[in-house]
Design a binder for these strands. Sequence first.
DNA 1: CTACGATGTAAACATCGTCCACATACATTA
DNA 2: TAATGTATGTGGACGATGTTTACATCGTAG
Lengths: 213, 213
Amino acid sequence: MKKNVPIEKRTTFRHGDLRNALLTAGLEMARVGGPNAVILRETTRQAGVSPNAAYRHFANQSALLDAVRSACISQLAAAIEDEMKKCRPRRDPQVFARKSLRAVGMGYLGFAMREPGMFRTAFSVPPPIHSPDPANTASMGLNPFQLLSLVLDRMQESGLIKGKGREGAEYLAWSTVHGLALLVLEGPLHAMPPQMVLALGERLVVMVERGLS
Amino acid sequence: MKKNVPIEKRTTFRHGDLRNALLTAGLEMARVGGPNAVILRETTRQAGVSPNAAYRHFANQSALLDAVRSACISQLAAAIEDEMKKCRPRRDPQVFARKSLRAVGMGYLGFAMREPGMFRTAFSVPPPIHSPDPANTASMGLNPFQLLSLVLDRMQESGLIKGKGREGAEYLAWSTVHGLALLVLEGPLHAMPPQMVLALGERLVVMVERGLS
DNA sequence: CTACGATGTAAACATCGTCCACATACATTA
DNA sequence: TAATGTATGTGGACGATGTTTACATCGTAG
């Protein structure tokens, strides 16, 4: 058991960018081991700094975790955006809307499978994802919830959702994919092969699409 | 901050039922504060015993948590059973099947809202709910997954699910309700009023029912 | 009755989060 | 330029947790 702490002894007294270094280290720990793995002392170790130095930049480890969580949510938003960009507007706006919904759902699920630690961190405890906190967004300036709302609007405008079907649609759609993701990540579907998970995801998206009309 | 540790000093050297006492204490902690709140030393304190005594009954705190988790899953199964018992067989087996599916879904969701700590504990990390471990069951001897399978069989037998619709139906149905539960418990839907959550749950069940045909 | 295995105790260690007092470097200003 | 103040990092300490090692005590089987 060797310490894998390649601290290059800093020559300057100041670190220069400590807050960022701590955050980066914490994000990596979250990536590897989920929310419980983000250890305050360890981040300072990796930054080559004494433990208390962290308290100049974060009120406590909970505040550090909050920052890490925001970063995770941003990455999730980015993953969804990537998937959305793959589908360009079409002649038929309904096709576009459907593809968009699928993109959000599968982007969400894909990120969960690709980065389980970050995904679990993103949703550990009460993330203020609802409020448009810029810290939770990616290049489009929208958080995952807002991205979902966007594509649902597209579906409504193109006539795929009628009348009251739009109300609360975010929650219905979100629940399905979120549930599958968590059952796979830290639930009894742990051993399910990724290919099958994705196939289930597709079926869920279709189910949502039909369920909203 | 007073210690609420009513340890009645035991007169005998042996405790008599320590393993069970630790488990009970741990379950209560999980109930109140979720998986992270089950502290090994605290369970021994409440049992009026030295910390190391726990190691005679559990390999480590992870093993203790596993046992607590199993208890939580059992309670979940019991809650679902309770809801299922409310709907008696009817003339029309399709009505019965539909009511049964609703019972499982709403029983699941209701337990999550009534006992958030236990619910979160039940699904923290890798629960072996899939394998028919008797530790996870309630009076019917079925774990939550098997209860769901049961009502889905009912739907198939009554003709509500046809052909390939039955394949993987457990996962589709489960994902939806599980997702809603977690979004509410430790997600962005944290502030949603319970009444609205239940209404969403009903819509989800209907959506699943239609989506499986 | 004796010896052994199961159960509980005592003491100790490493790690973690956190607080307090102190040290150092940079920037602003007199 | 020199003084001073503030932001930043250090050192040491405390209590809590999980865990290990050695020891004590009881019930029981031979």
